[in-house]
């Protein structure tokens, strides 16, 4: 009788373990649209933080969700179809790749973005490589 219970509980543990394992394996990517920003920053000062001390800024912002307000200077499409919004400066500004899922359901909003206007984006900061890389990102406010 006792052995039966032991076997049953072991089987139960194996099942739970397999379930947890499978859930982890198929865990989806974070939905950036639903995540709260850890920092809210102005584009120009955000870039300056990286230019002044890249290591410190990387430690502070890398892999964090940031809300950035800045001037839209370019809107490009990458070969794979991803839309790229560039804020503040085309060469040394903020480059943000829009989230593919979000893009699908927000095409009119993206088409309506005007170069030269202020825009607020929210995305994961990836660090600095000539420009600040943000990926994936969504547009929060279009002024």
């Amino acid at each position: 009788m006792k052995i039966k219970y032991i076997i049953l509980s072991i089987l139960f543990l194996i099942l739970v373990g397999a379930g947890v394992g499978l859930k982890m394996f198929f865990k989806p990517h974070d939905n950036i649209n639903k995540m709260d920003a850890s920092f809210k920053v102005e584009g120009a000062s955000f870039i300056n933080e990286f230019k002044k001390d890249e290591n410190a800024a990387t430690a502070k912002y890398s892999e964090k969700v940031i809300e950035i307000k800045g001037k839209l200077v370019a809107k490009n499409t990458l070969p794979n179809g991803t839309i790229l919004l560039i804020l503040e400066d085309e060469m040394e500004g903020i480059s943000s790749e829009l989230d593919a899922e979000w893009t699908k359901s927000n095409q009119p909003l993206i088409d309506g973005l005007k170069i030269g206007n202020l825009v607020t984006i929210k995305g994961v900061c990836k660090g600095f490589l000539m420009e600040v890389k943000v990926n994936p990102a969504v547009v929060v406010v279009n002024e």
């Binding site: 198929f26 990836k126 490589l129």
Partner: peptide
Amino acid sequence: FQALMTTFHFKRALME
């Protein structure tokens, strides 16, 4: 040529 490691995107979040 330079690349930021965190910009690599994988199909599964766990792989990333």
